[in-house]
Design a protein around this nucleic acid. Sequence first.
DNA 1: CATGAATGAGGATTCATTCAT
DNA 2: GATGAATGAATCCTCATTCAT
Lengths: 194, 194, 194, 194
Amino acid sequence: MSIEQRRADLIAATIEVIAESGCDGATTRTIAKRAGAPLAALHYSFSTKEDLFFSTFHSLVFDQIRAILHVRPNSGLGRASGHAIRQFLVWVTQNKSAARAQLELSLWIARHDSAAGQESYQSAIDLLTSILAPAMRSDDNPELLEPLAKIIIIAADGVVVHDAIVGDNLAIGVASDSLAESVELFVEANRLRR
Amino acid sequence: MSIEQRRADLIAATIEVIAESGCDGATTRTIAKRAGAPLAALHYSFSTKEDLFFSTFHSLVFDQIRAILHVRPNSGLGRASGHAIRQFLVWVTQNKSAARAQLELSLWIARHDSAAGQESYQSAIDLLTSILAPAMRSDDNPELLEPLAKIIIIAADGVVVHDAIVGDNLAIGVASDSLAESVELFVEANRLRR
Amino acid sequence: MSIEQRRADLIAATIEVIAESGCDGATTRTIAKRAGAPLAALHYSFSTKEDLFFSTFHSLVFDQIRAILHVRPNSGLGRASGHAIRQFLVWVTQNKSAARAQLELSLWIARHDSAAGQESYQSAIDLLTSILAPAMRSDDNPELLEPLAKIIIIAADGVVVHDAIVGDNLAIGVASDSLAESVELFVEANRLRR
Amino acid sequence: MSIEQRRADLIAATIEVIAESGCDGATTRTIAKRAGAPLAALHYSFSTKEDLFFSTFHSLVFDQIRAILHVRPNSGLGRASGHAIRQFLVWVTQNKSAARAQLELSLWIARHDSAAGQESYQSAIDLLTSILAPAMRSDDNPELLEPLAKIIIIAADGVVVHDAIVGDNLAIGVASDSLAESVELFVEANRLRR
DNA sequence: CATGAATGAGGATTCATTCAT
DNA sequence: GATGAATGAATCCTCATTCAT
């Protein structure tokens, strides 16, 4: 078995276990067993539990971003933002473990290496900004870009929390939709005047 | 020292420690030391760590709800919702430990007693609904009440996550404000036609 | 409530609890609750858990001895010994808690104050000897008295162990009866010749 | 050091410590120290203290049974039974710790898993029966087999209790001998008539 | 290279006992 | 006198990590 495969297996197992038991509840033994790997293999692939968690987090962020990657150029900032919120909702409901794990890891990282957490968060915002940018039309206000990116991420995290507790896809869908509509109206209302 | 005082001290210490170290990182020893109490006193006041956490959670929920309790009657559903979002933001930025602890505890409870978590969440939504209701005017759509309550709570949780990671009051303020405005517009747009 | 009554209640509770949970498993809290007494009352009536256990043991020994106290004068050493074995069996099956507690306490005392244990054991043997003595006829061998007393006590303890594990009155009855008969034959066979 | 050796060391230490301090008094720390093993090694070799105790018990039963295994075929049921009692006495006086530990463990198991205790006791009786059987002669009453097995075991347990408290080999020897003789006479008296 | 075996540090909890009232 | 409240010490157990093979 290649070391890359082993690392991938361990990361996949970590996501599942964290989603079930939280970061501190995710013991190395449990993760190794879930991955079908001997315990020592974990420390062979990742020097440390911390290391494993960071790697898992980066892998998740990468995934999640791909989920919101698709925005039609020139479709308008409002529509694009709403679309992102709706797309993210779909991703959450279809990747519950990943979403939950990502939330838990965010909080865990904020505790263990707050600089890394901030950096990671900022780059997510930057990426989101760069994704939304092409959707802008001439009368869209560029100053809204960053607040919108933050709103989207805030909404996303809030939805994950909601899902973690309630787990009711339908209700989240309704709220999420209203939120998307709200944001669209907000952008509409802040169109630039000629 | 009265036992009520002891319990209050321990709950206060629990909030601080959970905010710093998460639920699983919050060891009984640390909590007791922070409260200036001997370790055995913790198990004398609360039969179990679990018991302490549940009590802390209830205390927090009670507090938090008082923070959003004030809505002017007949002020309009949109305005009231926006107001709630802004008020909650203020509470978060002024009670960072409490906010963080409440988030961590929500996730912890969702894991340990998912029924209790859902019940608690639902009652928060119900309460929020009952707070928003008096603000409604004749042309406000009552069907928006529950989705709005959910949006507010989702936004609140998202903001706490954001704050946990970034800790930048100003940026959250801007995003939160935009969110409040978005929601106001959303309600406005869904006014009942006569 | 008189202190004597309290002591008696606590001793009764101790017997029950030790029978159920062993000596080390019998916590002061459990005993106090079983006796319907506040925890501190235990340490008020008996200076120490050790003290309580010693008192309980003495109370039990006194009881148990009364159970085998009745032997008809001049009935013959063999018959008397067999009778004692049978009587003790009845006592065990009718006072399971007491029997079990007495066994547990014997072992506990042997550990904590071996001198006291030996003394207590010896006085039980002496008493039993003095009970059997009047049953002797002219051709009974007085040198058998002490071995018989020991056999009876050994059998008694063995029966309690058996009962603790198997709890099957009938089977113990059969074995016990055979044992009684064996001992009778043994004494018969060792009659003095004229 | 092999894991088998570790387990054996821990079991040996457990026997000693239980003999000295009883089952509840036998703490994992004490046992580990006595075995010259780190505390964690105990939980590495045996998942649980309970597990360790069960294993120790089985090891003891196995040992003890081997001690009484030798009975001459066709030597007569009475003689064989008496021989077993005497042999067991020798084993007890030469393996005081083992004998004591086995007694304590029997009672402990009766409390913690009464089914296991009964099963274990029954299999001891069955084994003893199967050992005594070949000694039977044509005029020995086969219905005596099981009561005799029980008597032997009852006597054995009683002797262990006696030894635990008094620790006087000589006195136990005399009583035990008389008991053996009694049983021989009992079997003799119950010979089948032709 | 890969892993079974081993362990030091620290976790929650329980207990007998003591005081202040 | 009698007891509710309080606690230091000790218990079993788990975990991330290391190391010899």
